[in-house]
Design a protein around this nucleic acid. Structure first.
Lengths: 125, 125
DNA sequence: CTCTATGCAAAAACTTTGCAGGGAT
DNA sequence: ATCCCTGCAAAGTTTTTGCATAGAG
């Protein structure tokens, strides 16, 4: 089984918790926090956070913290920048080439905060 | 006095705490957290945070949260992006125009996370 | 069988809030 | 005199840690 192989290749035991997390994050193509998925997984939050840290160390998962103080995780395929609306909290994935922005450093995350189109309009209401 | 006028123009009382904060953030041209300045101010942390929030509402101060979970503040003059090294925590102010990257939204903060030049080198030691 | 993974509960870290007293205008 | 400001202490929120038990290989 493919999922199992991914874990074994990384010297990680193939446990139910990890299988759940892995398939959930593969199905949803968006960043999600513990809060977002807690009702869809059956494991303690400590297990969630510990496993996500491990998967991140193995470069299988990326994460960033939003302005809502929560950490969002997503599968590491095709790294990209994120736009976060500080009004409604919407997180939008962006397809910007980050490497060209800045030389001499190794960029692994770009977060752009602002007001999304919708919230910008509602300012005038 | 200029400082006093700035506060009065914004319907804020000119108190010792605010005067301290304002001159400190004007002198230092870098983002600073409560931790960074607590030894140089004589006020409770609640007063610090409350005043910084107020100054931010009045658009006199900008802030962002770093990967160390601390909120950094700086004077609102000349808004700019920041690079934060996730290894050593260094915060570098950047002079990039991000507005062109993304349309339809109102950008007010850009944070680029990565590994700074120094920490990148030390990886190989 | 051995070593890693998990659940539970408590700790940690930074920021915010409630409240009562003090100070500016 | 009236509000706003401040200090203190306690609460709040998300993530992390310690420890005993369970489970994968």
């Amino acid at each position: 089984m493919l999922n199992k192989k991914i874990f074994q290749d990384n010297a990680l035991k193939f446990t139910p918790a990890r299988e759940q997390l892995w398939s959930l994050f593969q199905d949803k193509a968006k960043p999600m926090s513990y809060e977002d998925i807690k009702d869809f997984i059956s494991m303690d939050k400590a297990t969630f956070y510990r496993n996500m840290s491990i998967l991140e160390e193995k470069n299988l998962i990326n994460s960033f913290e939003s302005s809502d103080k929560k950490r969002y995780y997503e599968i590491d395929n095709n790294p990209h920048a994120h736009f976060i609306c500080r009004i409604c909290g919407e997180i939008r994935c962006l397809d910007i080439d980050m490497s060209s922005i800045l030389s001499d450093v190794e960029i692994d995350n770009v977060i752009i905060y602002g007001k999304c189109e919708k919230c910008k309009k509602e300012d005038f209401i």
